[in-house]
Amino acid sequence: MPHSEPYISLKDIRRIYGQGDAEVRALDGVDIDIKRGEFVAIMGPSGSGKSTAMNLIGCLDRPTSGTYRFNGLEIAGLDGDERALIRRHYLAFIYQGYNLLARTSALDNVELPLIYKGIGKRERRERALHALDLVGLKGRETHDPSQLSGGQQQRVAIARALAGDPHVVLADEPTGNLDTQRSREIMELIVELRRKSGLTIIMVTHDEEIAEYASRLIWMVDGRVQQDRELQDAA
């Protein structure tokens, strides 16, 4: 990949909700460039636009103005189904609330993105089993989310994110619901997986200690990037 263009490039991005008096500038002129393989932590006070930025980068949303280039492709002009294809082939999400399908086995949850990728049943099964093995859930394949602890559920979500072989993983407060010990374990896992695969990771967190795992920290305030600096890369 040529160094001339970063993998993810946000230029003067604005995302404005509502109109007139009710107008909320969730993002108000954001510039961020991210290269492949970076591990970016985004921090900032509540309401500063972190989740809005994640949704935009994750192609779930469109900016009100500005340009967003992803892997050389202009995203702002794509319609919903086209953005779905980008998500399907390049992106994966990890959420604070895990977002697993209820009453559905861990294995079926992990297979979900592979179904939409059009991967055949046998390969799907193999890849999902492998992903569950990677996150340390061998033997829990048939368990429902309700039969798993929070940490285990987040591991399933990580396995689901990895199974589809994404280029970028977007994690919005992945450890927000977990205690310190569990949070550390999850982060160790993420760092470990990144080292193996060279994933690009963008993670929102409120926790200083969690942010330490990243290679770069972006600090947001009031819909703008206030600070953007390299960290000691844990990888």
């Binding site: 994750g58 779930l60 919903g80 189904d81 779905a84 294809l85 998500r87 399907r88 082939h89 992106l91 994966a92 999400f93 977002n99 697993l100 399908l101 979900l112 993105p113 939409y116 990728k117 689901r160 589809g164």
Partner: peptide
């Protein structure tokens, strides 16, 4: 969740 992992309309 389905939409997030890339399901189309």
């Amino acid at each position: 969740i389905r939409l997030a992992v890339g399901a189309q309309t």
